[in-house]
Design a protein around this nucleic acid. Structure first.
Length: 467
RNA sequence: UGCCGCAUAGCUCAGUCGGUAGAGCAGCUGACUGUUAAUCAGCGGGUCGUAGGUUCGAGUCCUACUGCGGCAGCCA
């Protein structure tokens, strides 16, 4: 057995008469008097292979072991299919059953199960139509993202996952420590841990899992011009929503000599090109999502690819919201952060496609965003998408040493922790921009899946770290 | 973390006014010369999330807890 072989995806391209071998897991078996049909899948494509077993070809005892969930290899020939639903099918001469799956206990059935139930058996759900499709699209999407950046001269950089700087400012952080090991895991260890000095810990100071690679990415951009990271990110927020994970994957490009306009152009090109790649290379999977998950998916994706994103300032958005006449639960006024209901109205009702909002009030945005001349707003941008809300958040960074230093102090942040970040502004500073894109949010958008836990193989959320 | 909802067979659900439990699918047995979520007949399958309470009697009403989901906040 070698990994180099013909996958089920390739068997559909073989002409009738071709001898072939098929490996996979059984989806379902249908028996008739003189013939049995077995659908098998190997994850290589959306379609199942129909294997036909004529009575007497294989022993009755062996046939009985070919049940839903079993892993098998069939040897036989590709033949023309007299039935409807497929051009060719696989006529089996012999079979090997590698692993049986007791039908009385195998939890997946032919009929669909709820996503909530499938989350509890996440180790088996990749065998079903939906999650096979999700994870194929996830794989292709990651590839398309790397391709997009590499094609444009970006360098893929790897920023640290463990960080000792408590200054990324993007949310609650997970601590990383070896003190627990030193103290054992008993109840007395907790008390001892509290008394410990972090100077005795592994890194000699408090360390955390990263909440963003941006600050490190900026350092590489100011030397390599265009860079991006694509890696795991951790937020310890106690969020229980359909669009938050404690562990997720984030794409963060950072560009030197680039203004907010260039940043917006990149974000728009990015979404369009990656979606086009998926339309070209995952059509069967997307067709399935369009049929069974989100009826307007394909028309929405084509629309995104073919039309410009609406761009407007925060100030204009607030104006439009105020004049909308909608009975919002939360009032809209200049200086307030936009609520989900406001973002939804803008993207879904007012504009009907992705919207890029820019120039937010500085007090609701991070310290590193470049201040505008009006003294009130910063060069921030949020890309809002219908159905899922904020998909991209980015900004032009503050490149002026004095302004940045003043802002750090104003916001009560520890100046000394930012020595290297400020150094970038002392030596060869340059206007630069970047954004962060949640990979799983993007996947929700392109698959139509409604819960972020269903676009990652094994989700980490508050109270949940199974598998 | 707040608000709302849900928890009954392996899965998806029904269960009326409080009177000791039902369907479809899956499973098992059999039938059927080519099925496509195959079809047909029969069979087995339940501590009604947990713990209390009200009541002659609780799947049903009340309280708490746990789990899950939705919305909001935090954000990507």
């Amino acid at each position: 057995m070698d990994y180099r072989r013909t996958y089920i995806r390739d068997l559909f391209d073989l002409p009738p008469g071709n001898p072939a071998t098929a490996y996979g897991w059984v989806k379902t078996r249908r028996d008739s008097k003189g013939v049995s049909f077995v659908q098998i899948a190997d994850g290589s494509c959306f379609k199942d292979l129909q294997v036909v077993i004529e009575a007497g070809t294989i022993p009755e005892e062996t046939l009985k072991r070919i049940t839903t969930g079993a892993s098998v290899r069939f040897d036989g020939d590709i033949v023309e299919s007299p039935g409807e639903g497929q051009e060719t099918e696989f006529k089996a001469h012999s079979v090997e059953v590698y692993g049986e799956a007791d039908p009385a206990h195998y939890p997946l059935q032919k009929k669909g199960a709820s996503f909530e139930f499938l989350r509890e058996i996440a180790h088996l759900r990749a065998r079903g139509n939906t999650f096979g499709a999700v994870f194929r699209v996830r794989s292709r999407c990651a590839y398309a993202i790397h391709k997009f950046f590499i094609d444009r001269g970006f360098h893929n950089i790897h920023t640290p996952i463990i960080t000792a700087s408590d200054c990324e400012g993007a949310g609650a952080m997970f601590a990383v420590t070896t003190l627990l090991d030193a103290q054992g895991h008993g109840p007395e260890a907790k008390a001892a841990l509290r008394a410990m000095e972090f100077s005795e810990d592994f890194f000699g100071k408090p360390a955390y899992l990263t909440v963003s690679g941006q600050l490190d990415a900026e350092t590489l951009a100011l030397g390599m011009t265009n860079v991006y990271t694509f890696g795991p990110t951790f937020r310890a927020e106690n969020s229980g929503t359909s669009r938050h994970l404690a562990e997720f994957w984030m794409i963060e490009p950072e560009m030197a000599f680039c203004s907010l306009e260039g940043n917006m152009n990149l974000a728009e090109e990015f979404l369009k090109e990656v979606i086009q790649d998926l339309l070209d290379n995952c059509s069967a999977d997307l067709e399935f999502f369009n049929q069974r998950i989100e009826p307007d998916l394909l028309s929405t994706l084509h629309h995104v690819v073919n039309s410009g994103f609406e761009r407007m300032t925060y100030t204009e958005a607030v104006d439009r919201l105020a004049k909308s006449g909608e009975p919002f639960e939360f009032p809209v006024f200049w200086g307030s952060d936009l609520q989900s209901e406001h973002e939804r109205w803008l993207t879904e009702i007012d504009v009907g496609r992705p919207v890029i909002l820019t120039d937010y009030p500085k007090d609701i945005k991070a310290f590193y965003m470049r201040q505008n001349e009006d003294g009130k707003t910063v060069r921030a941008m949020d890309v809002l998408a219908p159905r899922i809300g904020e998909i991209i958040g980015g900004s032009q960074r503050e490149e002026r040493y004095d302004v940045l230093e003043k802002r750090i102090v104003e916001m009560g942040l520890p100046l000394e922790a930012y020595w290297w970040y400020l150094d970038l502004r002392r030596f060869g500073s340059v206007p630069h921009s970047g954004f962060g894109l949640g990979f799983e949010r993007m996947l929700m958008y392109v698959t139509g899946m409604k819960n972020i836990r269903d676009v990652i193989p094994f989700h980490r959320t508050p109270g949940s770290a199974e598998f």
